[in-house]
Structures are given as C-alpha cells and as structure tokens.
Design a protein around this nucleic acid. Sequence first.
DNA 1: ATTACTAAATTCCGAGTAA
DNA 2: TTTACTCGGAATTTAGTAA
Lengths: 222, 222
Amino acid sequence: MSELNVFDKNFLLLLHLAKNCGLDRSCRLSTLKLSNEFGGSQQTISRKLRELEEAGLIERFPYSSGMELVITSLAKKYLKTYLNQIQRLFDEPELIGSIVGKVRSGLGEGAYYVSLSQYMKQFREKLGFTPFSGTLNLEVNEVEFQKILLNLTPVKIDGFKTRKRTFGSINCYRVKIKNYNRAVLMIPKRSVHKGNVVELIAPDVLRDELNLEDGDELKIDF
Amino acid sequence: MSELNVFDKNFLLLLHLAKNCGLDRSCRLSTLKLSNEFGGSQQTISRKLRELEEAGLIERFPYSSGMELVITSLAKKYLKTYLNQIQRLFDEPELIGSIVGKVRSGLGEGAYYVSLSQYMKQFREKLGFTPFSGTLNLEVNEVEFQKILLNLTPVKIDGFKTRKRTFGSINCYRVKIKNYNRAVLMIPKRSVHKGNVVELIAPDVLRDELNLEDGDELKIDF
DNA sequence: ATTACTAAATTCCGAGTAA
DNA sequence: TTTACTCGGAATTTAGTAA
C-alpha cells in the first residue's frame, strides 16, 4: 500500500480529530490527550499530526498546554468524498428489479440436467460454485419477469452435443433471495417448462436454506 | 494503534471491496487483480483477505480463476457506523446561532485594552493565539445577540488591578466568520460600548483578512 | 492460472530523552 | 508541563516460491 496518501493512511485519526473539533472550528488538545483517546503513543500521535499538517490536512497553532487544531477545507473535501462513497453503497441497492413467485415442485428434470458433467463444469467455472444437483421451481408472472430480464446480462452456459442428443445453452442470472445471495436463476434455451416457471440453482439446498414448502411465496431480487 | 480491530485496520480495503461487490451481492475477483486496483502486493492482499475472512467481515468461495467474495452483514454494520459518524460531521454544523452585524470604526480604546500585557498573557494561554492589538467593532441587534450568548459558555479572561485603576474581566466567545475560524468576540464586564456594539479580536488583522470596510454587513457564526 | 507460505526487506512504533 | 528527535525492536510488506 505504498501509494496510499497521507489522508488515507491517517483516515481514522482525522475522523477522530474531526469528531472532536468539528469541521468548522478549532479545538484545543495535546498529543498526550490524543494518544489516550485514540490509541498509540504520544510520539506516534506527534509524528502523525506532523504528517497531516505537512499534507495540509490540519493546521496547528502552539498553545501553552498543547495546541489549537483546525481541520482544513482540504481534509473536509476528503471526508466528504468518503461520505459519498459509503453513502452510495447504502443508497443504491443495485436492485434492477424484484419479482414474486410461488414455490412449485418439479418433476426432477432440472436435477438431471444440472448434474450433467458438461454443464456442471461450466457452473463451477462461470458461477464460482458447484450447484446442488437439484433445482427449485418457481411460478412467476411471465410478462413482469421478461421485462426484468431485458435489463440484465446473463452468464451464458454453453450447450453441447452427445451421440444421442443435443443439449441447449442456458442463460444464468445471479439473484438474491432474502439474505441468501448465491442463488442463480436458469433460463434454458429449450425449456421443458412454460414461460411462467423458472428454475433456481445454488451451492446449497435452497428448500432447506430458506425453509420453503410448496406454495410459499418467494421474492427474488435481481 | 495496537488496539485497532481488523475492520478499522482494513477499512479502506473493505470499502474497495464493497464498491466492487455491492453490499448484497457476491463478486468475483483475485488477489492479483485486487493488488493492482487497490495497491500493495498480491501477498499482502492475500493475507488481508484471510484476516477479513477470519474476522467474519467477508466470505470467500474458491473459484477456478480467483474467488467469489461476499461482504457479510457484520461488515455492513461497521460500514454503516462509519457512514453515520461522517454524516454527523456534515449534518451538524455545530452552529449555536448566527448574527449579522455592521462593521463600525472604533476609537481605538479596544486596541489599548487588548494590548495590555495582563490581558495579552491570558489571551495566549486561554485562546491559543496572540491577538493583533486592535479590534473590529461590530454593530449588532442587542436582543438577538443576547439570546445567542445565553447558549454559550465563554472563555473567561480575568480582570486585574493596577495602582491607578481596576480592569474588569472579559468574556470571550469563539466565532467563525466566513471561512475564518480563529476570531473571538469579546464582552468586557464593563464595556465602553452600548450593548449593541461588540468587539472582535483575532491573531490576524480581520479588516485585511476578510477585506472589510466600514458599513459592510458581516455574518458571525457561533 | 490461482492462493499462500517463508524469510528478508522495509516500515512503523514507542521508550528514552532533549528542548 | 509541552512537542519532537533518535534509535532499537516490533510489525508489516513483499520477493521468491510451493502447492
């Protein structure tokens, strides 16, 4: 982390100072007081304050028993960018859309296809996990569902041929269900289902993980 | 800073990860990719990720060319507390009140009192600066002004006696004017002014620093 | 390709102390 | 009392590799 600037390196200390002084006022403190409050030795605080001052992030004015300290507008600007960065994380749920479906029991075809090694290998490679060889079937509103898919880029699992038959490609979409975020929705090019039934795979058994029974309503976030 | 926890120590890395992955999704990356993006060596990133994982701040799932990474709800909670801390800094201007006054030229009495060594010594000790031996006179609305003072704790400059006469104590209030935050408003116990005129001192010449002329309106933040 | 171990290089910290 | 310097030791980083 050699390229870290003084602000980044001392972010926590500066935050502590700002909490003490406010952003628009000066406050009086000493290196010893700070070392007790913030941690570290008096010497280390002394050095860090010198670094911060040299970088133009604080201003110090000696004072008979310590110093008067001011957070500069440069430091304020830095703090603001951090604020914005973290805020953005919480502001944007990065949710393209949600859809509610009903849990249905399948006939086990999904499980068969998923377990094929040619698919399995690609799941591991492209999704980052080995799926449980079974699927969760979900009945959804086809129109709403298609609308959401238009805004998403699928992870594509290639099809393959054997001597006996051809297996189509599968479009996969990462989804989040409650707090579980490793589920993947599969849309096979040639589906055995009508358009209103979708299948989910995951590294875990979703029925157990999410405590589901047939008929349960389930919200999926894309 | 030995008492820093894993989160604090790796706050910036975790923020970087969160920006990449989002708070509710997983993302795929490798230690090499991260070391290029974030800085530091592949080895250092590897170690830090292990630390973060051990502390329950991230979860990792091996993947053929790297790993799949998830920000845990614990890390989310930490990020949220930081967000709140920084937000509070910007939310609360810590402004008790403001008042607008008009710049007036004084007769130089203020300058005389300020320059007295018995006062000057205390200014240095209690305010943290050596004031310019002159004051800026400001005409204010007395009622509004008194209302604000009620909510403030003054820095008290003690009075003293000489053989010839007695000098009263002075209440001082730190104020902010535009971006200048080292000005101090003085309220002498026995003032030569009527209650609608106040005097300001500062380590710098306020008239020059703030580019002021008689009659100018000036906003003071407490 | 990866991740991660070991060991050497480097950085950082803090006790002692001067000013 | 302060702040800040020196310097030895601790902690961190990274190069070289193994797996």
